[in-house]
């Protein structure tokens, strides 16, 4: 059964991961593999577009928790965009919005990255 997928595309120098479906303890390993590969390839300006993400459980949040420090240490970030209210609510319950950039659109994430660079 396949209820989760990731589409990877480049926007300028940024790596965009589009998540589709349900991210839980079963599917989280797919995201983990993808993120690890990007970090190994020195790609650490990552945008995760959640527009088609219908559901997230804490195992999904755990992947972001496990890798954000590595990515930031390398001078990059993982920015999250286009979340539906139900998915945002789960991030919000745990206080993620003060620790992660969660923005409306991909362009907003790119602007944030540009601001980060100029700081």
């Amino acid at each position: 059964m396949k209820n989760f997928s990731i589409n990877h595309r480049k926007v300028e120098t940024y790596d965009v991961l589009e998540l589709t479906g349900e991210l839980d303890a079963h599917t989280a390993s797919q995201l983990e593999t993808k993120l690890k590969r990007l970090i190994d390839q020195n790609q650490h300006h990552i945008i995760v577009n959640c527009e088609e993400l219908d559901y997230i459980a804490s195992a999904g949040l755990g992947v972001f928790m496990a890798y954000i420090e590595d990515v930031r240490t390398l001078g990059g970030d993982i920015k999250l965009t286009n979340m539906n209210p139900k998915v945002y609510n789960v991030f919000d319950l745990l206080g993620f919005p003060t620790l992660y950039d969660i923005v409306q659109q991909e362009e907003d994430a790119i602007k944030k990255f540009e601001q980060d660079e100029s700081n």
Partner: peptide
């Protein structure tokens, strides 16, 4: 208690948040 996500991130820990949720 509410898990300290900031601390978990620092220690690259995941999990331990399900019970709180």
């Amino acid at each position: 208690d509410k898990p300290d996500i900031r601390q978990k991130i620092k220690e690259k820990k995941r999990g331990g948040v399900g019970v709180y949720l």
